Amino acid sequence: MEETKSLCAKIPIELHNKVRANQEKSGLTLNQYVEKLIIEYYQMKEMKNMAQTRTLALQISEEIFARIKKHLDKNPNLTQKAFITELIIKALDEAELQENNNQ
């Protein structure tokens, strides 16, 4: 298990109530929820620092969507965006490697 360390901060009551309400809806523990928020924040910040980003939208079957959701539920620190991006990068890397080997 990855080593962890506590992080404490005082925040306004209204924000605290909002965070707790959303955390409860998510089904995650407070630790998991706050960690996910922080990870998503830094991923979003990284994306803003990139020269340009584009949106990729597609429709998938309900079965594939359910499989993705099940996987993400088992890995609460992994966002849907990060998971799909990793899959695309891996597939592209493999395709490029195969293309280079065929030349």
Rank of each mutant, 00 (worst) to 15 (best):
N31L: 02
N31M: 05
E96D: 09
D73W: 05
F83S: 07
L28P: 07
Q52C: 02
Y42W: 00
E99N: 07
G27E: 05
Q43L: 10
L37P: 06
P76Q: 03
E62L: 11
T29L: 11
C8A: 14
S26R: 03
Q80L: 13
N31I: 00
Q80R: 14
L30N: 04
A51T: 04
Q23M: 12
L37V: 00
R20W: 04
A57S: 15
K25Q: 11
C8Q: 09
I60Y: 05
P12A: 13
Q59K: 15
E46P: 04
Q52H: 07
L28D: 01
F83Q: 09
L87P: 03
I13L: 15
L58D: 05
A66I: 11
A57K: 13
S61A: 02
M47I: 08
E62W: 13
T85L: 11
Y41C: 00
L58N: 04
E96G: 03
L97E: 15
A57R: 10
N31Q: 10
N100G: 04
A51F: 00
Q23H: 02
M44S: 09
N100I: 04
G27Y: 01
K69P: 00
R67S: 14
E96A: 13
E46I: 00
Q103L: 14
K69W: 03
E46Q: 09
R54L: 06
I39R: 01
A91R: 14
A21R: 11
